[in-house]
Simulated assay, not measured.
Amino acid sequence: MLIANVRSSAFDGWTKWLKANSISLEQVPTIRTIPPRSERARPTPLSEFVNFSEAIVRETRNVAIPWLVGLNYSMSSMGELGKLIQTSKSVGGALRHFVNYFELLQNFTDISLEVDEQFTHLNYRILDPNIWPRHHDAMFSLGLAAKIMRSGIGDDWEGIEFMFETQQNEMIGNINKVVNAPCSFGAESNTLRFPTAFMDAKLIPRSDSLSRSEINSSLAAHRRYQPLSERIATLVFRDLGRSAVQQDEVARQVGLSGRSMRRKLSIEGATYQQVLDECRMRQAVFEFRTKPDLSLTEIALRLGYSEHSTFSRAFARWSGISPDAFRRNLNKCIN
């Protein structure tokens, strides 16, 4: 199953901002030692990075930190993607680069840009259901997008709104005041919504930055070494609860025929059904944890099962107990 990673250089902007604002990591005893600068080009488990951002807010009680780190983040810490963004002549071009090549920074993530005549939505969510909470990582990531926007529109924040996947009572502090915009909670994705006219705002491009062909080569190399089962799991998690997950469509999106996909999975010692079942069960646990009011029937439908009983049998085979019993045990641990 896929292991979610992030570039270790993602820590750079955090440590720089914390130091500049006289916040010592010794004040956050729950944080493990972060990777030394000499190892920042290597990937770090995404769960560790998210725990890092959550712990800082929890221990300092300052919900603004992830947002401010994002707004003040150095493009150089984004590696090749940062260089490409700096070639952009408009906010829209820069945001498209940010979305299209985000995979080079962090995998197992669903990030998209939806543009219509009036409003544009930049959507972001981590797909690994084992990583939760992840509220402040979302504020940091949307802060990166806001940094790109502000380089073109300045402080003109009129018409901007935020949506977060967490519930409001799980966040610390007044988020509306932190981002200086209306916020809503309990959404399907973390979203920055802004007037589409902002996409045309001009940027001053740098001529010494990365070319599109260079970063495309990097992305192709990145994907070449990623197991097929991980690429499939990413697509399955992205669509569970949102649209029907069809094997032929998954094959098409990974650039293979259904037969070739099954053959390559067999070489890895897996089957499509095994990947799908594992994703469904892990997502079910996430739904239990984050949507306590959903019935088992509703969860079964969200996961693509036509009947509650089919889901219950599959879950019992996977976990050893019924979904009802699992949910009760989970609630006891949470409470």
Score class of each variant (00 low, 15 high):
residue 243 S to Y: 09
residue 80 E to L: 10
residue 267 I to W: 08
residue 232 I to M: 11
residue 249 E to F: 12
residue 159 G to M: 02
residue 230 E to T: 10
residue 247 Q to G: 00
residue 82 G to S: 05
residue 221 A to C: 08
residue 227 P to F: 01
residue 231 R to I: 10
residue 45 P to C: 00
residue 46 L to R: 00
residue 113 L to F: 06
residue 121 H to W: 12
residue 95 L to A: 06
residue 149 M to V: 11
residue 313 R to C: 00
residue 156 D to Y: 07
residue 300 A to C: 08
residue 280 R to K: 13
residue 291 K to R: 15
residue 146 A to G: 00
residue 49 F to K: 02
residue 115 V to W: 07
residue 10 A to E: 09
residue 138 A to T: 00
residue 252 R to N: 15
residue 170 E to K: 07
residue 316 A to K: 12
residue 163 M to D: 11
residue 73 Y to C: 02
residue 93 G to S: 11
residue 80 E to Y: 05
residue 332 K to A: 14
residue 333 C to A: 14
residue 108 F to H: 14
residue 97 H to T: 09
residue 157 W to D: 08
residue 23 I to E: 04
residue 264 K to S: 11
residue 137 D to K: 04
residue 15 T to A: 13
residue 29 P to G: 13
residue 297 T to P: 00
residue 95 L to P: 04
residue 113 L to H: 07
residue 6 V to L: 06
residue 319 S to E: 14
residue 182 P to L: 11
residue 231 R to P: 03
residue 296 L to S: 10
residue 319 S to M: 12
residue 112 S to N: 15
residue 13 G to T: 06
residue 29 P to L: 13
residue 187 A to N: 12
residue 263 R to V: 03
residue 95 L to K: 05
residue 245 V to E: 04
residue 62 N to L: 09
residue 60 T to F: 02
residue 75 M to I: 02
residue 119 F to E: 14
residue 330 L to R: 10
residue 74 S to Q: 01
residue 175 I to F: 00
residue 103 E to A: 14
residue 162 F to H: 03
residue 168 Q to M: 08
residue 118 Q to Y: 13
residue 294 L to G: 09
residue 321 I to V: 15
residue 335 N to E: 11
residue 174 N to G: 05
residue 227 P to E: 01
residue 99 V to Q: 03
residue 152 G to D: 03
residue 11 F to K: 06
residue 256 L to C: 06
residue 5 N to E: 14
residue 305 Y to E: 11
residue 28 V to M: 13
residue 174 N to T: 05
residue 286 F to S: 09
residue 33 T to G: 12
residue 57 V to S: 01
residue 245 V to D: 02
residue 296 L to H: 14
residue 72 N to E: 03
residue 70 G to F: 04
residue 36 P to G: 08
residue 268 E to R: 04
residue 178 V to H: 05
residue 39 E to R: 07
residue 21 N to D: 03
residue 263 R to W: 00
residue 327 R to D: 08
residue 294 L to C: 11
residue 120 T to G: 06
residue 15 T to R: 15
residue 151 S to L: 14
residue 13 G to V: 06
residue 138 A to N: 01
residue 32 R to Y: 12
residue 272 Y to R: 02
residue 228 L to A: 03
residue 59 E to N: 08
residue 60 T to H: 02
residue 124 Y to C: 07
residue 302 R to N: 15
residue 60 T to E: 02
residue 7 R to Y: 10
residue 23 I to C: 04
residue 162 F to R: 04
residue 73 Y to A: 05
residue 322 S to C: 11
residue 132 W to K: 00
residue 288 F to R: 08
residue 293 D to A: 14
residue 177 K to G: 04
residue 38 S to N: 02
residue 307 E to W: 11
residue 66 P to Y: 05
residue 228 L to S: 01
residue 181 A to S: 14
residue 187 A to F: 07
residue 281 M to W: 08
residue 313 R to H: 06
residue 165 E to F: 05
residue 319 S to A: 15
residue 183 C to V: 13
residue 89 K to L: 12
residue 140 F to S: 02
residue 224 R to F: 07
residue 282 R to Q: 15
residue 327 R to H: 07
residue 72 N to Y: 01
residue 62 N to Q: 13
